[in-house]
Every structure is written in structure tokens, then in C-alpha cells.
Measured scan of single mutants.
Amino acid sequence: QVALSRTQVCGILREELFQGDAFHQSDTHIFIIMGASGDLAKKKIYPTIWWLFRDGLLPENTFIVGYARSRLTVADIRKQSEPFFKATPEEKLKLEDFFARNSYVAGQYDDAASYQRLNSHMNALHLGSQANRLFYLALPPTVYEAVTKNIHESCMSQIGWNRIIVEKPFGRDLQSSDRLSNHISSLFREDQIYRIDHYLGKEMVQNLMVLRFANRIFGPIWNRDNIACVILTFKEPFGTEGRGGYFDEFGIIRDVMQNHLLQMLCLVAMEKPASTNSDDVRDEKVKVLKCISEVQANNVVLGQYVGNPDGEGEATKGYLDDPTVPRGSTTATFAAVVLYVENERWDGVPFILRCGKALNERKAEVRLQFHDVAGDIFHQQCKRNELVIRVQPNEAVYTKMMTKKPGMFFNPEESELDLTYGNRYKNVKLPDAYERLILDVFCGSQMHFVRSDELREAWRIFTPLLHQIELEKPKPIPYIYGSRGPTEADELMKRVGFQYEGTYKWVNPHKL
């Protein structure tokens, strides 16, 4: 086992960053958080920038500027975001240094004079007029057009580079997404736009490419001749908990499936790229999406959770019991969808996408189930092999396979070949997804960000279904809070070829 401390991990990262040409360590950078008073800024962006600063992973002359409508001070920003920093008493001095680099400007999102004030403020910072500028839009999409237009007109660096990070949702359907994309691309070049999907920053999602293309053993079996089906799962054990009003506007397909799960599907299904260059990788992902037809209604199961009468606390409440959810809402909190990649490698292999709230566990994984062994000599005792990439929690890679049961006879039983990170790298604290992705933006690497043509294809696949749901308002199937979801989803999976045995229990190697 390799035991690495946080300091050692960050030392390795620093070495990698400083050796590259793309990370300008000594240049002045300004990180501007648009929507600095909001939840995302408070819980994710400010803490992430602090962790990067604490670990010495930001360029040395980096300033952080918050911008929002609320009249706040840096002290206010500190008060609301610091509880999420997880700072230790030993880091007190470092924390003071961090907040000394912070400033805040209040202004409207659609007022040109406010942006001119913001620009004057940035120019007044040390070497601010020639600094590289990175704008993070932690804002609702309704203000994107006004904000990007004003940034472009008043706040661009004339000497350094300018980059803009856009948070999902990128529209509600193909038409609104196209409108937003066309607007942003009329102001910024594609190499300046970073559409963030934080799932692409997760260690195991990034590991998929290495697993596939750096190991000879997987190449020959990664196709329709050997793989019976692919299941991509995202499960949350909690409901909307008072935030249903926002969720109800989008629903589970827009929230998770059309982005996170579809991105994971691309990494499983794509061909080997010409290189690890950002556009070479994204070219292959677009090719996969172009091979997927629009979702067919007979390959869809929609569910909505109801309270568990035997549960406790939140578990007793259904989705419609959330006071922020519109009365009688038919918005799905669970969806199972089957897609097919219609190309030579994957023809006929079902890709089953499942996601839901208020389920029995927290889990995100990719599961490849292989065909049955031909010419069975073990009297149907063999179960199908599976390769599982567990994204969260407890990152893991393992192969479910058959071995001989101890004893006199040739009785096979299920076991696993474990390729888990935790076994080799004991207690290594890896940077989280937002840390990686923000560092990628500083480096100018777009590999783990969504390109406009990729986004367009993703919406093309799901828009007809979303429009049909909005028009017909089908009643989702009720499922109990804390269950596996509607049984109809299991029946759909069985119908397209997935075999669920229920006889195997994964042993978490992190707890051995």
C-alpha cells in the first residue's frame, strides 16, 4: 500500500502544474464570482478556492472578487462561507491571508454602469489591468444573457486571457439551449467557454479513460460480442427537503440524466481518441451522441416518491408533501431510460440510465454486464461477469466473477477481482471535483468540460421526450421513500436483457 498525506498529494500536483506551459504561476489572475451571495458560491466555490489557495495550487498573485446585487462586505462573505471551509486552528494565518486577497463589488446584473465599476475595481488591483480574468457564473440561467453581454462589453482583460465558467442547466430543451449557446458564442470563442459538469471532475469518471485505453485486457472485450448491457446509475437517499420548488422546474431527467449520466455513457462508449488533447476527446464523445436516436417512450419509466409510513423524519414525507412543490405536480423524481448506440461496436446493446431521489442508498456507478459463458459445464450455477466502476461513495473498480467454492467439488461461487483505489492508495485525500475543474480552467484544459456541439446532441436525444411529458403530463409511478424505485423499472431492465441475480454482496474494501 502507498500512504500519501494531503501535503504529498498537493506537492505532486504542484510539480505537475508548474512543469506545464499552460499554468502561468507568476502571472496575476483575477477570479470573479458572479452571484457571490448565492448558495453555490457559499457552499462550493469559495470553499474550493480556499482549498486550492491553502494547498498552494493557485497562481501566487490571485485575487478573488465577488459580485452580486446584495450590498455585502468581505466580512459578510466570510461569515456565510467559512463554515464550509473546514479550516483547522493551525490554518488561521493562512485564512487571514486568503481573505486579504478577497474583495466585493455590489451591482445589478443588467446595468452597464455596475460592470464599469467592477472593471475599475479590477484595474485598481495590483497589475489588475493586465491580469488573466476568470469569470464564474454562479447564477440562474435567466440572467446569463445580460451578464455575459455586460462582461464582454465592460470587463474583459485587454492583455491577459479571459475565460468564463457556465453552470448547468444549459437551457431547458434543445431550442433554449441553442439560443443560449448562440448568444454566448457570439461574445466569446469556444476556447474561452467552460460549461461545467462537476461529474466530469470526479476521480473515477476520469479513471474510465485510463482503464479503457491503457489496459490491453479490456480492449478486445469492450464491444457487443461480449457486453450484454451497460447500466449507469445515480441514486440519492434523500428527497427534495424543502427545495422542491427549484427541482420541480427541471425534474430528474434535466437535473441528472441528460448531463451526468449521458457524459458517463460517452466515456464508456467512445472510441479511442487520437490523443488526450481536449478536442480529440470531445470529438469522440460527440460521435457517440450522434449514434444515439431520440428516446422512445416505451423505453422510459418515470416515478415519484411517496412517504414511507414506517419511516422516520423526512422519510415519512412524499414529494408532494414538500411545501415548495406545486400542488398535484407530476414532475418525476425517478427515471429509467434505455438508449442504444447504433454503431458497429455497440449495435443492440442497451445502455440503461437510472437516477432518482429518496432511494435506498447513495450511489453513482457504471456497471457493464457481460454475456453468459458459452457451453456451460457447471449446471447453470454460473452468474454473469460484471465490471463495476463505483464513482461514489467509496470509489472502487471491481470485476464480479466466478471462482471455485472451497471444498471437494467443482462448485462455482461469485467473488470479485478488486482493482480499488483504496487498497493501493491508503487514506489518500484526493482533490474534489470542483478543485480539479477550476484548476483545469486556470490551465486552459477543456477536456472535462462540455463543448457546444456535445451539448446540442445531448438535448436532441431528450427534448422530444421532455416535450411529450410536458404536454401529456403522465402521472409518475409512486414508489416508497427509501425503496429501490418503481418495480416497473426493474421490469424494463429485465425486458431489454439485464439479469439481476441478487445473490452477490459487494464487500467494501475500504472497511476491511
Score class of each variant (00 low, 15 high):
residue 340 Y to E: 06
residue 477 I to V: 13
residue 327 R to M: 14
residue 333 T to A: 01
residue 460 R to K: 09
residue 367 R to H: 08
residue 442 F to L: 13
residue 279 D to S: 06
residue 332 A to R: 02
residue 304 Q to P: 01
residue 443 C to D: 15
residue 324 T to Y: 15
residue 456 R to I: 07
residue 364 A to H: 11
residue 444 G to W: 00
residue 416 E to C: 13
residue 485 G to K: 02
residue 278 S to N: 14
residue 265 L to C: 08
residue 320 L to N: 03
residue 439 L to Q: 10
residue 385 N to P: 09
residue 453 D to M: 09
residue 341 V to A: 03
residue 318 G to Y: 00
residue 261 L to T: 03
residue 494 K to W: 11
residue 398 Y to R: 10
residue 457 E to P: 02
residue 350 P to G: 00
residue 457 E to L: 05
residue 325 V to P: 02
residue 511 K to R: 09
residue 483 S to D: 10
residue 297 A to T: 13
residue 292 I to T: 12
residue 307 G to S: 07
residue 344 E to N: 11
residue 364 A to N: 13
residue 457 E to S: 04
residue 356 G to V: 00
residue 493 M to T: 07
residue 381 Q to N: 13
residue 321 D to T: 09
residue 378 F to H: 01
residue 420 T to L: 14
residue 345 R to W: 04
residue 305 Y to T: 00
residue 266 C to Q: 09
residue 472 E to A: 08
residue 485 G to I: 01
residue 311 G to N: 09
residue 276 T to M: 08
residue 402 M to Q: 12
residue 342 E to T: 08
residue 290 K to H: 14
residue 333 T to E: 02
residue 372 D to G: 06
residue 281 V to L: 10
residue 415 S to Q: 15
residue 258 Q to K: 12
residue 382 C to N: 11
residue 288 V to S: 03
residue 282 R to N: 03
residue 318 G to S: 06
residue 435 E to T: 10
residue 472 E to C: 11
residue 271 E to I: 00
residue 386 E to M: 04
residue 292 I to F: 01
residue 485 G to P: 03
residue 257 M to S: 05
residue 490 D to Y: 09
residue 408 M to E: 15
residue 313 G to W: 05
residue 363 K to V: 12
residue 487 T to A: 15
residue 305 Y to E: 01
residue 291 C to P: 02
residue 333 T to N: 01
residue 329 S to N: 03
residue 266 C to P: 10
residue 332 A to L: 01
residue 334 F to C: 07
residue 437 L to W: 07
residue 317 K to Q: 10
residue 343 N to F: 02
residue 385 N to C: 08
residue 365 E to L: 02
residue 497 G to I: 13
residue 433 A to P: 13
residue 488 E to F: 04
residue 437 L to I: 11
residue 358 A to R: 02
residue 412 P to Y: 14
residue 386 E to W: 01
residue 432 D to V: 12
residue 373 V to L: 14
residue 315 A to T: 07
residue 433 A to C: 15
residue 294 E to A: 09
residue 417 L to P: 04
residue 464 P to D: 07
residue 460 R to D: 01
residue 316 T to I: 12
residue 492 L to T: 03
residue 441 V to I: 06
residue 507 V to P: 14
residue 304 Q to V: 04
residue 419 L to S: 07
residue 322 D to A: 08
residue 261 L to W: 02
residue 372 D to E: 12
residue 331 T to H: 02
residue 460 R to Y: 01
residue 499 Q to P: 15
residue 264 M to W: 15
residue 490 D to I: 12
residue 339 L to V: 09
residue 442 F to E: 01
residue 421 Y to Q: 15
residue 508 N to T: 09
residue 304 Q to F: 01
residue 299 N to M: 13
residue 443 C to L: 06
residue 329 S to K: 02
residue 386 E to P: 00
residue 297 A to D: 12
residue 451 R to C: 09
residue 437 L to Y: 09
residue 335 A to C: 06
residue 271 E to V: 02
residue 256 V to A: 15
residue 403 T to S: 11
residue 422 G to W: 10
residue 368 L to Y: 02
residue 353 L to H: 01
residue 341 V to N: 00
residue 403 T to F: 14
residue 326 P to A: 09
residue 399 T to D: 05
residue 406 P to E: 15
residue 337 V to T: 12
residue 352 I to Q: 01
residue 389 I to S: 04
residue 378 F to E: 02
residue 324 T to L: 15
residue 435 E to S: 14
residue 420 T to I: 07
residue 304 Q to A: 04
residue 412 P to K: 05
residue 425 Y to R: 14
residue 496 V to C: 14
residue 502 G to S: 13
residue 442 F to K: 01
residue 288 V to A: 05
residue 510 H to K: 10
residue 374 A to L: 09
residue 317 K to H: 11
residue 370 F to K: 02
residue 501 E to A: 05
residue 326 P to H: 09
residue 505 K to G: 11
residue 284 E to R: 05
residue 442 F to D: 00
residue 342 E to Y: 05
residue 339 L to S: 03
